[in-house]
Amino acid sequence: MHRRQFLCSISAAGALITLPSFSSSDQKNSVEDLPALEGKLTLYLGRGEGGLYENVLTAIESRNRNLELNIRRGPTAALANAIVAESKAGVQRADLFWAVDSGAIGLMNAEGLSQPIPQDLLSQLKPKFRYTNWAPITGRIRTIPFNTTRIKSTDIPNDIMSLPESGLSIGWAPAYASFQSFVTAMRIIEGEDATSDWLRRVKKTAKSYAGELSVVMGVERGEIDIGFANHYYCLRLKAGKPEATVDLAFTKNDAGCLVNVSGVVALSDKDLSTNFIRYLHTLEVQSYLAHEAYEIPLIEGIAQPHGIPPLDSISPPQIDLTRLSDLNPTLELMRKTGVL
C-alpha cells in the first residue's frame, strides 16, 4: 500500500511506469524501513539521465517533505574538478557526488575527500561490489552490439582478444570515457604488450565514432557489423525503435564483458548523506532504474533489465574497479598505438 504511494508519486512526476513484480520475501530493502530524511542536502549528479534519475530523486523528495535537496548536474569530470577546486578554496557545497565514472571516484579518494561508508550499507551490496569509501549504485556491462541482418551472434568470437581476426567490421569510440575504462581493464588483465597489440589490430579496420551511442546507431544503420559499447545504449535504442536491427553479444571472462558501475561518494560525514545513499539501494529505486534506465541492479534479489542475460550467467572479469581510475598509462598506450 505504502509502496504503491511511493510509485504513484513517481508516476505523478511524469513517467509512465510498469513495475516489475516483487516477491514479498524481499521486504528488507524497502523504503518503508528507512528513516525519514530531514535537512539540507546537496547532490552533485555526474550525468544527465533525462527524467529517470529525476523521477527517483523527486520520489525521494516527495516521501521526505522535510528534505531540502539541491541537485547540480554536469559532466562527471567537470563536477569532480569543481569539487577539487571547492575543497582547495575551503568551500564545501556538495554532500554527495554521484559519478558515472570510477575514475572520478578514484580522484575523490586520491584527494582524500571521500568519507567512509557504514558497514551495514555495504553488506546490502552484492559481494563483488563492496568498497569502504564509496557506494556503487548501478552497473553496466561492456557488450558487443551487432547488426542482426548482417551477422548472427554465433559469428562473434567469445574471446575479446581474438575479435580483430574475426573478419567482422568494427566500430569504436576511443575518445569515450567508458571505452578508456575498458582498455584500462584490459591493460590490467592482459598486460600492456597484449593490449597495445590488440589496439593495433583493431585499429587496422575499425571505424571511429564520437560516442558509444553513435557506435550503436552505426551498427543499427549497418555501417559496421559490430561495435564496443555499454549495454544500455542498445536497450534504450530498441525501447524507442523496437524494430531496430541490433542485438547484444557478450565475451567470456575478459575485459570485453567488464561490469563497471556508477557510484556515490559521501563528501560530508552527515548521517543524512549516508541515509540518502540507503534510499538509492532500496528495492524500489533499484528495480525502477533496472526497468526504466536498463541499469544493472547491484542489490541481491532484484530482477535484471529486460534484454540482457542474468548477471550470473555472464562471467565478468574479477577486478578492483577503483584501479580503473589509473587512466594515464592507458592514454599513453592509446596514443603510442595511434588510436587516440
Binding site: 559532466p75 569530470a77 572520478a104 570515457a177 564520437a210 587516440l340
Partner: peptide, 17 residues
C-alpha cells in the same frame, strides 16, 4: 568525425588531467 585540437583537450580533461 574530425580530429581537432579540442579533442585532445577533452580527452585529457575527462581523464582528470
Amino acid at each position: 568525425g574530425v580530429d581537432t585540437f579540442t579533442r585532445d583537450i577533452y580527452i585529457e580533461y575527462n581523464a582528470f588531467g
